[in-house]
Design a protein around this nucleic acid. Structure first.
Lengths: 215, 215
DNA sequence: TTCAGGAGTTGACACTGTCAACATTGTTCC
DNA sequence: GGAACAATGTTGACAGTGTCAACTCCTGAA
């Protein structure tokens, strides 16, 4: 983890931590995963990093700011995941489907990040960086659909609307799955998250594909 | 509010509150509205109800349980709103559109309830009652679509899937709007919530309407 | 070598959720 | 009526939290 400093001292040793900021973010992520956003505590993160309860304040002005930072970071990871998913094929329909599935799978397999990214108290303390990261995600959706439109896969003229509806549906499905709200529905109870995403995408595509499409 | 007891005493007077449970839920809702779910405090709710900091424990076993109760109540109100919206017309397409718009409008105009209903720490402490209330909402979506299917408005054979996708899209859109995530998108920035809901519904309907539909 | 400032520490404060023990009230049965 | 009893509220305490202020330690530049 370190770069230059004296390797790995056995005890907690050094006065300067080396990369406290990173350690705190990692610890926070773990705590959110096990105790929820609400249950995350600055002092416990400090403890996990072997540091006094006030050390975090040298890196983050408040508990909320740390969470916002985590959210911004997560949003970047999400965008990376979407880009990676899409990169594996050139077929426009496939790309859309993979992108959607990647969204759902990110929400599930990086649940802690995802929860922080869309927790309400982070939303009300959003920074310009976080806003920019969220906009980038939406624009990625849009650009992908724009390419499909130009290739003639989907109907002309409502790319922004399609992006809005697509993102909403995937986002909503991800949250409903994450919260277990769908666990008692016949349609979703026995399906894996990626299958649920497929169902959502299938329906969405029916609404936007060109009549002559290859559906 | 009271029924039999001595009207409204000017001072806080009476040892027994009368309806503390209700007062606490109302106070909690107000606090969530102004300070967020995270910022809601049992002690402040108690203060708002003119009662000692421990009185709430005679009605709720914990802070979280109070929130779960609030969520269950909100889910009931949501279902009522959906039913009321649908009742105003017999046209199946209209009913679906009104139902969707009502969902979005509930999320916006009852934001505090909605936030509690889908806050993650409520989700992880869900009671049977809350689960039942959520299932009822999904079933209402389903039943509405089933009626449309039988009337020939929408394609045969995938009502559950349509309900899943529809709920997901509306839910996702509501949360994205509520969190302000869409504020910087060209498509949603200058639109009212109900217009955004209309856009979502328009797209969804294109995907499920019968070819011979009146779209 | 000095020294300014970044990084971490200790100590304090008001506040929180929750537990235990106690006080007051309304109800129910003789 | 009054006596037991359960509900409902209260007071007091405790550990834990976020944050502020003042301090110490360490590193890199002048």
């Amino acid at each position: 983890m370190k770069t230059t400093r004296p390797a790995a001292a056995p005890a907690k040793a050094a006065y300067h931590h080396g990369d406290l900021r990173r350690s705190l973010l990692d610890a926070a992520l773990g705590l959110v995963a096990s105790h929820g956003v609400q249950g995350f505590t600055l002092r416990e993160a400090a403890r996990a990093a072997n540091v006094s309860h006030n050390a975090p304040y040298r890196h983050f002005p408040s508990r909320t700011h740390l969470l916002v930072e985590l959210a911004t970071e997560g949003q970047g990871h999400l965008l990376n995941a979407l880009e990676a998913a899409v990169a594996r094929t050139a077929d426009h329909r496939d790309r859309i489907v993979r992108m959607g599935i990647a969204y759902m799978e990110f929400a599930i397999s990086h649940a802690a990040h995802f929860r922080v990214m869309f927790s309400s108290d982070v939303a009300r303390n959003r920074t310009a960086d976080l806003t920019a990261a969220q906009n980038a995600t939406f624009q990625f959706f849009e650009s992908e659909l724009l390419a499909s439109e130009q290739a003639g896969l989907i109907r002309k003229g409502a790319v922004q609307q399609h992006a809005l509806v697509g993102w909403s549906a995937l986002h909503g499905a991800a949250l409903l799955v994450l919260d277990g709200v769908l666990d008692n529905t016949a349609i979703a109870a026995r399906r894996k998250p990626r299958e649920i995403a497929s169902l959502v995408l299938e329906s969405l595509l029916k609404g936007i594909l060109n009549p002559g499409g290859n559906a």
